[in-house]
Design a protein around this nucleic acid. Structure first.
Length: 648
RNA sequence: GCCGCCGUAGCUCAGUGGUAGAGCACGUCCUUGGUAAGGACGGGGUCGAGUGUUCAAUUCACUCCGGCGGCACCA
């Protein structure tokens, strides 16, 4: 007898081994129809799996949180079958479920284009209509390897050989189509909702390695219902509306052009935002015990060789040599590199003069402009550029101070993010990468120190194996934006390696030389990227204190021009970023324009206002008007526009 | 860097083997209008760059540059 415990606490007894489908049927015909898979003692399994012992079983339906993953994984298989039916000779490789959808990687000589999608989607629907039974089989390694080799699936054959001993080699059969897959899967293709859509094709490397063959990846999205699919497509449109490249142009913040690919031309408004952000961060650092420095832009490559960056990153560095005849020789044949990062420079400042343990921790901040030759395919708007400014700082401290400094930084970071409108932050812990500097003993120490520190700072971290910097492990702070997207911005890295390589020392209490530890840290990461994130997070509707143009004073009739000028001058004298719109246009036109430009405040000034020395205030996103005396309006707006924590 | 797609006016986009068009924006004039587009007229393009095919290339081919979507990379 087999006793099956159900989620509601009840137990159903069966005379012998049962399948999930039978359990579902025993509960009710509705559930039997809706069943997609099950969980046996919490582990996801096919409905056809035979349960031979007592267990807790939960039937998974389209409403279960696990359903989307199953649906997407099945959609990937149906896609693969459709593609192989339509394009014989195409090899299959991998096709997992991913966030919001799925993909499948194919090897084929001809290329897929989006024009192929309608045909493939139609075939996918047809496969759903065929309602093919999906069943798991366990094969021997030899049989599986032989089978895939025989039918020309060399990627599958390769993979079969690498499945560890002791693991089942499971094959899913869907009609007469087979795939090597761990599952689980829906009981038949007919259970797959038709709420899917192919979205894009791209290249992808076999096993994620650029040295391997490039495959063709077809992406799709799949949902439990048409409504969900529609909602997803709407979400994509929303993301497109927020695109910082589009808003940057529309709001006249910046532009990019090919003579300086990967570098930003900041327009007055964009630069105003940049400066506002910079001075805010500077204020926070000033108040948190940092000293700001500035290090050279062009530095002899010897320094980068010493730091280890040359070895690892020389291909991504810009070089600079004097151009004048004979100058290079006169200069001792030096080769300079434009700095790709600030840390070696910070170490040079630390090394000036003897440092005592009494000087530690020493927090050196730098708004460092760095240049890196990023691969052309990596460039993306202002989010991934070749010239950027970090809100960088290096904290030189003793090992004992790591924890306290980490806590202090995390506190600052949380508060800064909150001021900037981000409260949903999670933290990744990236440990030692395969290629690294420093001994394992040093890495053990560094990882332990960072773990302790992050625990002490009250952070919950998820592990990110092998993703640390070459000189040390790091915490990465990921912000979730208004529409649920994640952006990695802040970082905290523990570094025992660079102080050693660049020979930084301090004199300890014992009168002996010691190595300081270096903490590399950034909050925004790069201003360029962070500004892109801000723009997208707020959809261009920046909070008043950040808005490059906080208000526009727009006249209704030209008789009000003189008063409007005076009002704007007063506002500007009070530190508000206000523009004057005296154009020969109707107020409706001006309202529309400034609304589209996402200016937070609009002061309409007509004859009435000029006579009574008032302004009619309209706020972005509202149609209400509020008439205020000029002085009152200035006081009010000034208060609202205050930089967070600026008041003393 | 790799795969695919794209590059026509400031922006969004039509279009053609015989050297180009719309809407918005811009300029001038009229209009002084009370909260999301008032009217008239006008200027504006080496059709990304180069090479080739052709009597003729913005259109076809190739190379390069840049952009977009992924992949890889990200000190």
């Amino acid at each position: 007898m087999v006793a099956i415990r159900l989620p509601d606490g009840s137990t159903k007894n069966f005379p012998g081994a049962v399948t999930g489908a039978e359990v579902a049927a025993a509960i009710g015909p509705g559930l039997a129809r809706a069943a997609l898979a099950m969980k046996i003692d919490g582990a996801l399994a096919d409905l056809k799996t035979v349960i031979a012992r007592d267990a807790a079983v939960e039937i998974v339906t389209a409403k279960s949180p696990e359903a989307l993953g199953l649906i997407r994984h099945d959609a990937a298989h149906v896609l693969a079958q459709a593609v192989q039916e339509l394009y014989p000779g195409t090899q299959i490789t991998f096709g997992p479920a991913i966030e919001d959808g799925f993909y499948y990687d194919f090897a084929r000589n001809d290329t897929f284009t989006p024009e192929d999608f309608p045909k493939i989607e139609a075939r996918m629907r047809e496969i759903v209509d065929r309602n093919l039974d999906i069943a798991r089989e366990v094969w021997s390694r030899d049989d599986a390897a032989r089978h895939f080799a025989q039918i020309g699936e060399k990627y599958k054959a390769e993979w079969v050989r690498e499945i560890p001993d002791g693991e089942d080699i499971s094959i899913y059969r869907q009609g007469d189509w087979l795939d090597l897959c761990t599952g689980p899967h829906l009981p038949s293709t007919g259970k797959l909702p038709k709420a899917f859509k192919l979205t894009k094709v791209s290249g992808a490397y076999w096993r994620g390695d650029a040295r391997n063959a490039q495959l063709q990846r077809i992406y799709g999205t799949a949902w439990a219902s048409e409504e969900q699919l529609k909602a997803y497509l709407t979400r994509l449109e929303e993301a497109e509306r927020r695109d910082h490249r589009r808003l940057g142009r529309e709001m006249n913040l910046f532009h990019l052009q090919e003579e300086a690919a990967g570098a930003v031309f900041w327009h007055p408004k964009g630069w105003t935002l940049f400066r506002t952000l910079e001075s805010y961060v500077r204020m926070r650092l000033d108040r948190d015990g940092y000293a700001e420095v500035k290090t050279p832009q062009i530095v002899d490559r010897k320094l980068w060789e010493a730091s280890g960056h040359w070895d690892k990153f020389k291909d991504a560095m810009f070089l600079a040599t004097p151009r004048a005849e004979g100058a290079a020789a006169e200069d001792g044949g030096r080769v300079y590199a434009i700095k790709p990062m600030n840390c070696p420079g910070a170490v040079q400042i630390f090394k000036q003069g003897l440092k005592s343990y009494r000087d530690l921790p020493l927090r050196l901040a730098e708004f460092g402009a760095c240049h890196r030759y990023e691969p052309s395919g990596a460039l993306h708007g202002i989010m991934r550029v070749r010239a950027f400014t970090q809100d960088d700082a290096h904290i030189f401290c003793t090992e004992d101070q790591i924890t306290a400094e980490s806590i202090r930084f995390c506190d600052l970071l949380r508060s800064v993010y909150a001021d900037l409108g981000f409260t949903d932050v999670h933290v990744k812990f990236s440990d030692r990468p395969p290629v690294r500097a420093g001994t394992d003993a040093i890495w053990d120490k560094a990882e332990r120190a960072l773990e302790e520190a992050s625990k002490a700072a009250g952070l919950e971290t998820t592990r990110n194996p092998g993703e640390g910097a070459f000189y040390g492990p790091k915490l990465e702070f990921v912000l979730r934006d208004a529409i649920g997207r994640d952006w990695q911005c802040g970082t905290l890295q523990v570094d025992f390696v660079l102080p050693e390589r660049l020979d930084a020392t301090y004199i300890g209490e014992d009168g002996q030389k010691h190595r300081p530890v270096m903490l590399h840290r950034a909050m925004l990461g790069s201003f360029e990227r962070f500004m892109g994130v801000l723009i997208e997070h707020f959809a261009g509707r920046l909070p008043l204190w950040l808005a490059p143009v906080q208000a526009v004073a727009a006249t209704i009739v030209s008789d009000a021009d003189a008063y409007a000028r005076e009002a704007v001058a007063q506002m500007q004298a009070n530190g508000l970023r206000v523009e004057l719109d005296l154009r020969n246009e109707k107020i409706g036109y001006k309202v529309r324009e400034h609304t589209l430009a996402k200016v937070p405040l609009l002061f309409a000034i007509g004859r009435r206002e000029a006579e009574k020395r008032t302004v009619a205030l309209r706020r972005l996103g509202s149609e209400a008007q509020e008439t205020l005396a000029l002085d009152e309006a200035i006081a009010k707006v000034r208060n609202e526009a205050q930089v967070p924590r600026a008041a003393r």
